[in-house]
Design a protein around this nucleic acid. Structure first.
Lengths: 195, 195
DNA sequence: TATGATAATGAACACCGTGTTCGGAACAAC
DNA sequence: GTTGTTCCGAACACGGTGTTCATTATCATA
């Protein structure tokens, strides 16, 4: 009754692997269904029997990411570490470090808006669950806070991948938390008003 | 000697106007060269004589934006107002308010990565010129600060367009500056550690 | 206003990727 | 083994792309 036919599992796995390989090789945007099925050596009809488009294939690949991140966060929770809100970020930086090439291909240069949006969606979901632990404010609405956190995370991650490939996840995380919690106000007051 | 043949000016203007109209009507991504030349009532060959693709046409449209923003900033400078760094933001919020529908179509929902990247490019250029007035820091590198400012601006702008269409530019600007300069650290310390 | 230069036109074209169909081969599960 | 599902591959119509070329319309200028 469940879908555990080895053939469908094999086909989908083959397609995802081919997709990852191609993304690393030449980015996602210019990718074509034709190339994917050639790389995977899968019949055209078969592809469309499983996914409606290449975007659908990519989205499918993010299921794993979501569950991994949720699991990682659970671990941190039970570990009882010192972890204010934003428990997601460290796990995410580690994940991005492990799959560095894929992330770089998806976020940098000719990256895809579909990929970025998908990551954004996953992150928003995670952060949303942590938001209630935060205080409220008169200036910045809650929903914007959520977008701000996610946006700043992606900014930091993208910057790390492009400019500091060898930065450790913990260091990246420290920078990220610094930005989210203090902004860059210190830089403005630190040297006074000029001119 | 200069390119001021009325015919080419007319053609390009017509194309840009048609593009704006179509973007407002159905977003940019699914747009097709065919639709653009139909809407503009311009010959196919003529289009390709001026622009290599629809992306090139869009990019061309951002020239005006850049000069308008630079001019606006100059005005603020000479006005001698109280204007710490980030003088670009208010002018930009006003511009976005004036062309609300276009910005919403480009940034929200089915917006285009090309448009967002183009806006990002223009903003980065502007902010970069203001950065030297900022202090330095051991934690956050200068280049990341730039990306952080631009990213936070876009986050705020997108949020305004989608959720608070009637917000005045000055109010949006206040929220933006608050986020950039103080982050959301106050929300975390304000209610202490829970659990 | 006449003239040479340049731009616009529209039809035709080859090319490529898409998404669908179908009969037959390969495979899984019972 | 039998039955039901999945995979295959070739073929197809469709639509968008980017280019070409001869013809027509418009421009700048004198």
């Amino acid at each position: 009754m469940e879908e555990i036919d080895r053939r469908v599992a094999r086909t989908r796995r083959t397609l995802h692997e081919a997709l990852i390989r191609l993304i690393m090789r030449k980015g996602y945007d210019t990718l074509t269904v034709q190339e994917i099925i050639d790389e995977a050596d899968i019949g055209r009809a078969t592809f469309y029997a499983h996914y409606r488009s290449k975007d659908a294939l990519l989205r499918g690949g993010f299921e794993r990411l979501r569950s991994e991140l949720k699991a990682a966060r659970q671990d941190v929770r039970h570990g009882g570490e010192r972890d204010p809100p934003l428990t997601f970020s460290f796990a995410m930086f580690e994940h991005a470090c492990a799959y560095r090439d894929v992330y770089r291909a998806m976020l940098g240069g000719q990256g895809s808006i579909i990929a970025v949006n998908e990551i954004r969606r996953v992150l928003s979901e995670l952060v949303k669950e942590e938001l209630p632990t935060l205080g409220d404010d008169d200036v910045v609405p809650r929903e914007l806070m959520l977008q701000f956190v996610v946006g700043t995370f992606l900014t930091t991650l993208t910057w790390c991948l492009e400019k500091r490939p060898k930065l450790a996840p913990s260091e990246a995380n420290a920078i990220f938390r610094h930005l989210v919690m203090q902004g860059i106000g210190w830089a403005i007051v630190s040297d006074g008003r000029q001119r």
